[in-house]
Design a protein around this nucleic acid. Sequence first.
DNA 1: TAGCACAGTTCCAAATCAGAACTCACTCGG
DNA 2: CCGAGTGAGTTCTGATTTGGAACTGTGCTA
Lengths: 157, 157
Amino acid sequence: MKWNDLESDACPVARGLSVVGDRWTMLVLRDCFLGIRRFEQMQERLGITRHILADRLRKLEAAGVLRREPYQERPLRHEYRLTERGKALYPVLVSLIAWANAHVPPPGEPSVTLVSKETGAPIAPVLVDARTGKQITARSVTAQTRDAPPLRGLDQS
Amino acid sequence: MKWNDLESDACPVARGLSVVGDRWTMLVLRDCFLGIRRFEQMQERLGITRHILADRLRKLEAAGVLRREPYQERPLRHEYRLTERGKALYPVLVSLIAWANAHVPPPGEPSVTLVSKETGAPIAPVLVDARTGKQITARSVTAQTRDAPPLRGLDQS
DNA sequence: TAGCACAGTTCCAAATCAGAACTCACTCGG
DNA sequence: CCGAGTGAGTTCTGATTTGGAACTGTGCTA
């Protein structure tokens, strides 16, 4: 399978990964969420090759996740900012952070955690259904294909 | 930067990606959540090279995300199942699905959606703080490093 | 006039991946 | 007993993708 085919895959996981599913993209976006906007800064913070960074930024712009806009003329220079579509990825990032802090043991205490901007209190993210407010788990929720019946899911795992 | 260095990175995003951050891993896990457990099935459904699939399964097992257990002897054969650590990745997958269905236009209507197993009603996932019940957004929440002050975040984006 | 900054681009070598064939331990049908 | 079939891999080779380092272009500052 070629990677670009994923973009038009029926499966939303595949489509999502066609945009953010490579080794660097989510790290680039992490920096964007932290307010990093400039090429040089990203390159230095991430330790990514300039080559690859340029390529990823191009692709993220093409996907409508980042937007490139001039912050000065003479010489003309651009910075990268999250679009609404990009900001909508925040839950993915937060879920990943929560999982990693709980399950990929850092050397020592988790050194980066999520806190409320208002109160500074630590945050424990949970996914719930907007309608019912109930927590979403692999046991309570399943994927449904429009044409085909769902596979058996996790019930008897 | 070498990929394996990420594993011990202070940043939880980097640590998380050291486990699930490559081109195939999340797709493998998607199949696991759908109840697929056998090598041959995954290989066929995903269109992944047998070589790479074997490698990813090994790594996921080493990371404690999947567990490999015999389902028959003579000849001895194993299947792969999600561990608790693996199941804890569900929110990441769900967030990705929600984002892709909303922002990576599928050809036609989203053909795979999330529904409640009980009622069959569609699910709209939202991330909230377990403590306060308030929605988590890039504006209300920020990352905090234990030693350093946070970067400026999205406030004035 | 000589650096210096920023945002890239270019080139080559090294790592990773795709595709196909091969292995191994069995089972089953005739 | 022989040959085909199954499931889970492994091995090979050639193509793609990365990493690392140097180079380019435009303008600023001393």
